[in-house]
Write a protein that binds this DNA or RNA. Structure first.
Lengths: 119, 119
DNA sequence: CCATAGTGCAACCCTTCGATTGCAGTATGG
DNA sequence: CCATACTGCAATCGAAGGGTTGCACTATGG
């Protein structure tokens, strides 16, 4: 996403779409469903009890951020979770949290000094 | 969140609120801002060029999911990022992605066999 | 050739939610 | 006691987005 480690990764260009994609419960259900079994939109829709078109929209979003991939099989479009992309994300979050931990060590002291009633 | 490792963590009860909290760009900006410097709603609002009330709402949400903590200082309410909670989240995501990686090794083979044009 | 099952696009409803403004309450400091 | 600077709640506006239905298109398989 950035290559730089630290809090600013959260504000990077693609971060918005990525977090937005993950924010929807139905999309997360789709991810879990696809992790169990790659399938086409219709099959997922039947399992999750949502219309095929709604699932298709979600799949489009998940594809756009690289969380799932798709491949044509005859007239079907079979979708599957993209593990590499997934790994990327967890790594990013790891970096962010580590960066914060580092910063927050100083900040904690700082905050305590500011708590000082002498201010 | 669950204690169990694996994709299902994404569907856990609190996951919705957590991802929703992280989904908003302004809230992520607030987190970064607070990581640099713990402060009250008014100060953050001035920096981010958003109304104080809007910031206050966001802070409430961030508090609810445990991403930030607050402490009274005289009449001020000073907010700061909660590193422990942050760590929790990245750990969860790590578990999820590792779980998926494991599953997806099998799934990849499966998908490739399904891609087989002889079908 | 026809029935079937998948896709993709578009229009629409309705709920959610981010942001604003306004006002009242509370505590600090002169 | 009064001015200041916070806080907290409420009402409102507008945009975004999830879900639905409907229709046209394509390709497989009898």
């Amino acid at each position: 996403m950035t290559g730089r480690a630290g809090p600013d990764g959260l504000l990077a260009e693609g971060a918005d779409d990525l977090f937005a994609a993950l924010a929807d419960r139905t999309r997360r259900r789709i991810l879990v469903r696809l992790a169990e079994q790659p399938d086409d939109a219709g099959a997922v829709a039947r399992d999750l009890d949502v219309s095929r078109q709604a699932i298709a929209k979600h799949l489009r979003i998940l594809e756009d951020v690289g969380l799932v991939g798709a491949a044509r099989q005859k007239q079907r479009r079979v979708h599957a979770v993209e593990p590499a992309r997934l790994r990327e994300i967890s790594d990013l979050l790891g970096l962010v949290s580590r960066g914060w931990d580092r910063r927050l060590l100083q900040i904690k002291d700082l905050a305590e000094s500011r708590d000082d009633p002498s201010a």
